[in-house]
Simulated scan of single mutants.
Amino acid sequence: MPYIETRDGTALFYRDWGTGRPVLFCSAWGMDSVEARGVMADLVGHGMRAISFDRRGHGRSDDPGRGYDYDTLSDDLADVIEHLDLHELILVGHSMGGGEVVRYLTRNGDDRVDGIVLLAATLPFMLATPDNPDGLPGEVVAELRSSWRHHMDDWLIENADAYVGAGLPGCSVSLLARDAVLNSILGTSRLAAMECNRAVVETDFRAELPAITVPALLIHGDSDASISVELGGRKQADLLPDSKLLVYENAPHGLYLTHPERLTLDLLAFAAETRQPHQNAAATMP
């Protein structure tokens, strides 16, 4: 099976399909490399290379019981990119994965990256503070995390319909597909789930987003119950220097399940727009 060993000795499972220009997917909180598989298969069918990996404590990767902060997680991402020697890369971060994408760029630069896609990303800052009054109250989130120790299943069942947009026009997700998401999260290391949630809620990316200069495509549903487009996509667009926001009407947080065909088309269009100038120039030289 394909694994890489990170700089701290953690083994990460990854999927690497196709041989074209690379698109690397960073999954949502509690999800693994299976999450984007439908869109990945679509991209391979269009001649691209699609890659995803299991975050530490998720899926088939090691569960070391540590390293669930964004610095370590972005270093894991850097190790995957370097191991596979990826260039001209499009990075796609769904939900929590958006933070890994941003922190990777601010820690490693963009020499290998042509553009990023932030898909329903939990950015720029989720926690309520005096200068971020629309965020989530810290004590409420801490209590929720504590409840997950023994009652994660109850919480997942209560929030499943909102995740897949049950009842929204065009959001028809089978029970089998919905339950696969629940089982993925339920099977994630409980410690990893709790500490990754802490990182998602408490990490402030507001100072980092303006430093990113590669093109950024922002995709957010207008019915996202995990992070609203006002708290997420619109604030990201205000902070990123070179960004475009697409708002999907009647769309929830689980966009891979509800809007896969549209996502594929938007990713292909973005990839076509984001080739580095030196590559285009080289292509036209005699």
Rank of each mutant, 00 (worst) to 15 (best):
V44R: 10
G45P: 02
G45E: 02
G45D: 03
H46Y: 10
H46M: 02
H46S: 07
G47C: 10
G47A: 08
G47P: 04
M48S: 06
M48H: 14
R49S: 06
A50N: 06
A50V: 09
A50L: 07
I51N: 04
I51H: 00
S52E: 07
F53M: 13
D54S: 05
R55H: 14
R55N: 11
G57H: 02
G57W: 01
G59E: 04
G59M: 11
G59S: 09
S61T: 05
S61K: 06
D62K: 08
D62M: 04
D63H: 02
R66W: 02
G67Y: 01
Y68K: 10
D69Q: 05
D69R: 03
Y70G: 04
Y70A: 09
D71F: 04
D71K: 06
D71P: 00
D71C: 01
T72M: 09
L73Q: 14
S74R: 07
D75R: 15
D76F: 01
D76G: 04
D76A: 04
L77G: 01
A78P: 00
A78C: 03
A78M: 04
D79Y: 14
D79W: 14
V80S: 00
V80H: 07
I81H: 06
E82M: 03
E82K: 08
H83R: 15
L84E: 10
D85T: 11
D85H: 15
D85E: 15
L86Q: 09
L86F: 09
E88H: 05
E88M: 00
E88C: 02
L89G: 04
L89I: 07
L89M: 08
L91E: 05
L91G: 01
L91F: 05
V92I: 15
V92G: 03
V92W: 11
G93R: 08
G93T: 08
G93E: 07
G97I: 12
G97P: 10
G98N: 14
G99R: 12
E100F: 05
E100S: 03
E100P: 02
V101A: 13
V101K: 05
V101N: 08
V102E: 04
V102P: 02
R103I: 06
R103L: 06
L105D: 06
L105W: 06
L105C: 09
T106L: 08
T106S: 07
T106K: 06
R107L: 02
N108G: 01
G109V: 12
D110A: 15
D111N: 03
R112F: 00
V113I: 12
D114A: 12
G115D: 10
G115P: 02
I116C: 09
I116W: 06
L118F: 11
L118M: 13
L118I: 14
L119E: 08
L119K: 11
A120G: 15
A120L: 12
A120V: 10
A121E: 09
T122C: 15
T122M: 13
P124H: 06
F125L: 13
M126I: 11
M126Y: 14
A128R: 15
A128T: 11
T129K: 12
P130L: 11
P130K: 10
D131T: 11
N132C: 09
N132W: 08
N132A: 08
D134P: 03
D134V: 08
D134L: 14
D134W: 05
G135Q: 12
G135D: 12
L136V: 11
L136P: 00
P137V: 11
V140E: 12
V140F: 09
A142M: 10
A142K: 15
A142W: 12
E143T: 14
E143K: 14
L144T: 08
